[in-house]
Design a protein around this nucleic acid. Sequence first.
DNA 1: AATGAATGAGGGTTCATTCAT
DNA 2: TATGAATGAACCCTCATTCAT
Lengths: 190, 190, 190, 190
Amino acid sequence: MAGDKRELILDTAIEVMAEEGYYYTKMSWIADRAGIAVGTIYNYFNGKEEVLEEIFAREFEKRLELLNELEASRDLSVISKVELFLVRHFKEIKRNPALGNILVREKEFPKKEGSINNYLDKLPNAIESLLIEGKESGELDIDNPALIAAIIFGGIQGVVERSIKKENLEMLDDASAEIISLLKLRATNN
Amino acid sequence: MAGDKRELILDTAIEVMAEEGYYYTKMSWIADRAGIAVGTIYNYFNGKEEVLEEIFAREFEKRLELLNELEASRDLSVISKVELFLVRHFKEIKRNPALGNILVREKEFPKKEGSINNYLDKLPNAIESLLIEGKESGELDIDNPALIAAIIFGGIQGVVERSIKKENLEMLDDASAEIISLLKLRATNN
Amino acid sequence: MAGDKRELILDTAIEVMAEEGYYYTKMSWIADRAGIAVGTIYNYFNGKEEVLEEIFAREFEKRLELLNELEASRDLSVISKVELFLVRHFKEIKRNPALGNILVREKEFPKKEGSINNYLDKLPNAIESLLIEGKESGELDIDNPALIAAIIFGGIQGVVERSIKKENLEMLDDASAEIISLLKLRATNN
Amino acid sequence: MAGDKRELILDTAIEVMAEEGYYYTKMSWIADRAGIAVGTIYNYFNGKEEVLEEIFAREFEKRLELLNELEASRDLSVISKVELFLVRHFKEIKRNPALGNILVREKEFPKKEGSINNYLDKLPNAIESLLIEGKESGELDIDNPALIAAIIFGGIQGVVERSIKKENLEMLDDASAEIISLLKLRATNN
DNA sequence: AATGAATGAGGGTTCATTCAT
DNA sequence: TATGAATGAACCCTCATTCAT
């Protein structure tokens, strides 16, 4: 049941941080909302930062795992891979928009090793890798994979951010098709 | 003279906040780096938040003004308008990447009226307006202007963020062409 | 337990503020003298002002309660009522002169509603009410109850202030008789 | 004309401090209201405290001088002396209530030698001396001159405070007669 | 394991005072 | 003498973290 308590804390933290932002969120608010004592949080996490870290770690690892799986599968075109990733990502955000809000907004962390900063690069890097693969295989005709990856990654974040702020989650349904069109434009015709 | 001091404070604040992030930035760091006393900052600003607010206000207003001008000009196609905006924006960021870093990263503010929150929506809204204009004039064939605007706005931010983090500002040179291609895809052929 | 800590803080605050005055009193002095951390004070009070407010609230309410009781009792003459009030008041001051010192000296507060300012008028008002009662019942022959009330109230404060400053608390023993003589002078002979 | 500037500063300080209280009064407010620069105040006074000190010094010395004169005059009874003092004091207050407000409210000063604290005792002491004189000459039949002096001095302050707060300066007209009745009560009949 | 009162370092802000002009 | 921008020590308060129960 220890796992349950940890889960409860994380879920509550996501809610509160999504509403208030990481820096404005007080540990006591999380505790109150979760119906536990502040001290209890410290039985499961080493501190406030670690709570956020864990949220990022879980979500990023989930996505990196998916990307790795996709990358490995030989049968899929690069474009399909990216598309599958987007579809899955937006589905998750739609299921838990609060989580999406956090992933998209929290970009300021103390400059120390081993913290969240590590994760923030991995996703755009992975997308970039996919694009390079597509370029090398001849599937895509692109000069600057880093640029395209940056636009795609930014576009993803933009859609999430905007759909949440405008409380229009339906926007997420068409997002992958729209973003992927940017890639299809570069598809060679073989 | 007075203007100079205010400018000095703003410029220094941009530097420090770009490096450390708003919440980690201490007023005393800004003062030290600017070679003035902490108290002096308070002769020009009402507090830490107002410093950031002023930065946002200036930059957003510069861009909104440009967008309004562009929107008004009858000779330009919507696509050209967006492109002109992007070119200018990326040029400014290249001139002052620290500033770009702030505009792109700081997304967490106390939920009160009249603060930075006001600005954050205006830019994507303006882009959306342009797209709607293009749709209505028949220049663009798009179903969901809000979605496209979100992707474009996100894409802009993604490029800025990534180019700064990878210290590869050249990426910005091709960014507008790349983002605009997403729109050209939807151009009707008349 | 919780009540004890609150009480400890209040008692210590009374001591320190009596010695140093409210504005010169530093929160850290109270904490040090009480043997607790500054932060602890803020677990029981919202700030420095609220500590003083609570002191005033308690003491004034104690006295107002007494005055209300006295006012209600039909068997007592007005002069007896005032006398009983004075006797009790001076006894309390003798028991805790530091407290008296504060009640008598602190007269400067931010001009905002709901703070100590509310209390400061209530006591002289209550005395004035008593005098008016005596006038209307024919017990007292006075033209200007407000003036007499002001002198009595001021006289009370003068005695407290002076007895504390001259460290001559015995002065308080005869104070009520002396002050009351001012009223007896106006007693009609029925 | 240097004197004029000093006078201007003092008069303005009295106004502002009467309204806001010494601790809330900012040097810049005094300067603004006086139409001069903050720095100018420091050409005439050594600091904020000295401004208040000067106000107290002037007013107290005026009154002490009067009391000394009265004390010296052989033709007057003690009761008349006190009465003359009261009449003059209340007249001055009526002319400048703001000043009265300050004299009556400001009771908190840093515990250092040579500051205002010196003055605060002198007036009640002088009144006490008069009473002792009356007692020794047989004019007054009192046991505890210190107590009566405290009541009289407090009564004076009470009337001033109350008349200002209730904006009823007429109260001051009858105040001396009322207070003096307390003494007449003790007059022996020779 | 859970609690939540106690802790105290840390930082934003104020404002009397200074001093170069 | 007058100015008022610059100064920086001082202080209130916050809140993540601890630890005795």
